[in-house]
Amino acid sequence: MRDKVVQVLEIKMIDKRVNNFEEALQGIADSSTVLLGGFGQAGSPVELIEALIDQGATNLTVVSNNAGEGEFGLAALMKAGRIRKVICSYPRSSGSFIFEELYESGKIELEIVPQGTLSERMRAAGAGIGGFFTPTSAGTLLSQDKEVRQIDGKDYVFEKPLKADVALIKAHTADRWGNLTYNKSARNFGPAMAMAADLTIAQVQEITNLGEIDPEHVVTPGIFVNRVLEVKLEN
């Protein structure tokens, strides 16, 4: 027994957990396109977005269903002057006064995309699809500069994939492989955004041990996620 050489193999474990906001947001560059999860406040990664103010990246193009409300989260990032352009479906929620001020004074660019198209464009980017034809917006102002094709007698508008440098999303539970589950209607854009960005960062309520999320219940498989940060929030 004593003669036997015991070879200790160092197994490099996949570990997407990060310890703090600084590690979570490391490397986000100026002029990045950043996807922000959430529909209104449900699923909005408010704490990650606010940490991005300290991180310092600026001249950002932000993709988000809404344009922020109050003076927290996305609205705070806007107020800090870090956003050049917003791509969203509905910027007019009550309480979006910071966006409205910036828009009306010409300090922020706006691109309106129908909600289903917005989500599908990100899914297409994540799925390696070069674009798709949708009936949504045919014959409206929003398809004015786009290719329209008649398929089986119906007009369809060509939409391109929407790829991003970074996605900041909020989920409920993660493990060290980056598998995610969500909570109720806070799931919304999370799964599409996670797959559409080169760097996907999720803030979660809880990180559990590998194997504790039932494989049948994983909503976003860890392959689409790069970093997970536990941010415990009071309900």
Binding site: S89, F99, Y103, Q115, T136
Partner: peptide
């Protein structure tokens, strides 16, 4: 979804998807 008043930002949400779908 929009009027002819351009002073306010437009917003379409899911209306166009629902209308056609």
């Amino acid at each position: 979804w929009a009027t002819l008043d351009n002073s306010k930002p437009p917003g379409v949400g899911g209306a166009m998807d629902l209308a056609v779908g």
